[in-house]
Simulated assay, not measured.
Amino acid sequence: MNIKPSKDRKAIRLQFTVEGASFSFAPLKGGKWENKRDRQLVAAIATKIENDILAGHFDPSLEKYRHKSSSAEIPLVAKTQKVKWLDIWDKWVLSLGLPTATASDHYACVRAMLAKAKNPLLDDIEWLQSSELAASTFNRRLSMLRSCFSWAVEEGFVKPVDNPLKKIRSRIATEDERQQSASKKAPLSDAEIEKILDYVDRVYITYAPFVRFLLFSGVRTGEAVGLTWDNVNLEKRLIFIRQSVSRERGKYQKICKSPKTKESIRTLKMSDRVFALFSSLIAENACGLIFKSPKGQIIDHGNFRSQCWKPVLLALGIPYRKPYATRHTLLSQALESGLSVPQVAQIAGHRDGKMILQHYGHVINQPQLPEF
């Protein structure tokens, strides 16, 4: 199901059908189609409805999906000393019209830091300077705060001369942080892959097909979790990546969303081993999710990592990598096998080869020392 906002003379409308019943309503009072933020907000509500239908929590009264005004929409005092970071932050995030999954990630983490610091005034940055964050995380959040402040200046809530972030410098990663980050993303070797596959086949039978698909396809974990049988064509040996499933940070609500970028909505041609995997899994009248948890439910990223992935690597004595390393492994293998950068970018779902060159350039046509 793909619910999309439609233009109405006086509102932005959502129209859809659930179990034969038709629904049509305007969730955003006073919303205008010409307003990009209004369209994005209604689109986010449409995604919430899709998720609830998928999870069996749909509210036919529609009250759950009517947008309620936020305290972040209350005009702020234009004096910097009286403006609080939390007020500015909420108003800025709301203006971005972010998808639920995106807003619940680093944006929610920054908000939690602000709330923990008891909502400091805008000229108070001690809560940020004293934070014990890794350099990469600190720099990411500092960049977000700078964007937030710049927006506040453009909107007239604060003055440029009052910017308290000027005195904060980006952090430089320590050698330990760099090594830990690199090791968690390092591709798996052929020997490690064989050990993992053999072990999950014997010990984690339910998760074994899921692990194989991650290693054989290079798709993002959320894309594999959300893959359904109607997005697989065995006859033509094609896989259609059209959605991704993630979990809202700190909650157990699954969020079904479009893949990361427009390019991520893509078609993959099966390799022989992926075709063999799907052929072994498909049953008569197969429908719904392809990969499921041991309890027959949608796979939870955190549970998979803690209940399968970590124990497997620990039992085999393999240095820990995030599950995302399966993607790095496949893309590295693709380049080493001789596929061009544009071809690998298409497999990965990237707009162009820039990201591929940035992250995997070291494996492309490595020169061999000459013989003298």
Rank of each mutant, 00 (worst) to 15 (best):
L227I: 05
D190E: 14
R237D: 09
V211N: 00
G222A: 06
F210D: 01
W229V: 08
T206K: 15
A208N: 03
S217D: 07
L234W: 06
K236I: 11
R220G: 06
D198K: 14
L214W: 06
L197G: 04
E235Y: 11
D190L: 11
K195Y: 03
T221F: 10
R242P: 06
W229K: 03
F216L: 12
L227N: 04
V203S: 13
R242G: 07
D201W: 01
F213M: 11
E235D: 09
I196D: 00
R237N: 02
R212L: 01
A208Q: 02
P209M: 07
L238S: 12
E194W: 12
I205L: 13
R202F: 08
L215V: 05
R202P: 15
V225E: 02
Q243T: 11
I239R: 02
E223L: 03
L215E: 09
P209Q: 10
T228I: 13
R237M: 07
E223D: 11
K236Q: 13
P209C: 11
E192Q: 13
E235C: 02
R237V: 08
T228G: 08
A208D: 04
E235V: 04
Y204H: 15
L234C: 07
R202Q: 15
V200L: 01
K195H: 05
W229C: 02
F213P: 00
L234P: 03
N231H: 15
A191I: 13
V219Q: 15
E223P: 03
I193R: 12
R242L: 06
I239N: 01
G226R: 01
D230Q: 12
F213G: 00
F213Q: 01
I196R: 00
F213Y: 13
L214F: 08
L197A: 07
D201Q: 09
L227G: 02
F216C: 02
T228E: 14
I239L: 14
I196Y: 00
V203H: 13
I205H: 12
L197Q: 06
R242S: 09
V225M: 07
K236W: 11
K236L: 09
D201I: 01
G222W: 05
L238T: 13
D230T: 15
I205W: 13
W229T: 07
N233R: 10
D201L: 02
A191D: 15
I239C: 05
F240A: 13
V232E: 04
D201E: 10
F213S: 00
L197S: 05
P209E: 06
F210I: 07
T228N: 11
N233E: 12
I241T: 10
G218D: 01
Y207L: 06
Y199S: 04
I241A: 14
K195S: 06
E194L: 13
D190Y: 10
E192R: 05
